[in-house]
């Protein structure tokens, strides 16, 4: 088996870890009981992926609980707060579309992530299906849901440019990934009666440095909550 490039395992693992955490914040707050089950399902899949990936890079708990904010390599998209249900769905649509294309490529290659990607891509197919259906329902539901979904898509758009920055140690066809992503998202939004956002998504004033450890303000607070208990008992096992 090929040697696992640690920075790549961290980047992909942190994406999954952080989004799983955000989805876990929905527990007890979902709009309908079926969504309690669905969101937890997605969160659990992502947590499973995160544990597998972080374990390739080192000790999963040390990496999750003892790194400082600047050492996390996730894209900024996944750390964005849940917002309303439309924001959560928009974030999931953007991310799952990316993850499915990326893992699809990795699964069919021979790199060190192929076995993991082959398993994860099946999970992600469900995540994407879930996000797509809710995008259609919200986009083509009521005037209010349409407006909320459009606002969410617009607000998160600036964080999508970073998804296509090549990750060191991940051998993917990044331009093809971006093309596939754009074609898919454009199609879903068209079917939902929503408008593809047009704002900038790269450059000095947009997002795009999560992979270098530059995050957004809410992320520090998220980590403070996530790491507090573990850090309060140094060396303890749980």
């Amino acid at each position: 088996m090929n040697r696992v490039p640690v920075p790549a395992a961290l980047a992909l693992g942190d994406d999954a870890l952080v989004l799983s955490h955000r989805l876990g914040e929905w527990a007890g707050n979902a709009p309908v009981l079926e969504e309690e089950v669905a969101l937890a399902n997605i969160a659990l899949d992502l947590l499973g992926q995160a544990r597998a990936l972080l374990s390739l890079a080192g000790d999963e708990d040390e990496l999750a609980f003892l790194r400082e904010e600047r050492a996390f390599r996730n894209v900024q998209l996944v750390e964005q707060p849940n917002g309303d249900f439309a924001h959560t769905i928009a974030r999931q649509l953007y991310f799952s579309a990316y993850q499915q294309l990326l893992y699809g490529q990795l699964a069919s290659g021979e790199g060190p992530f192929a076995p993991l990607a082959a398993k994860a891509v099946k999970e992600v197919a469900y995540h994407l299906d879930h996000a797509e259906h809710w995008t259609l329902r919200l986009g083509d539901g009521t005037p209010e849901s349409h407006a909320r979904m459009q606002r969410a898509l617009d607000a998160l758009w600036r964080y999508t440019g970073e998804l296509f920055e090549p990750v060191e140690g991940v051998s993917a066809d990044w331009p093809a990934l971006q093309d596939g992503w754009s074609a898919y998202v454009t199609d879903v939004l068209r079917r939902a009666g929503l408008t593809l956002p047009e704002g900038p998504r790269e450059g000095a004033w947009t997002a795009g440095a999560g992979r270098q450890g530059i995050h957004t303000e809410p992320f520090g607070r998220m980590l403070a909550e996530m790491q507090h208990l573990h850090r309060s008992h140094p060396g303890a096992s749980w």
Partner: peptide
């Protein structure tokens, strides 16, 4: 959101 290990969190 505060579970002290990833296993316990899962």
């Amino acid at each position: 959101t505060r579970a002290p290990s990833l296993r316990r969190k899962a």
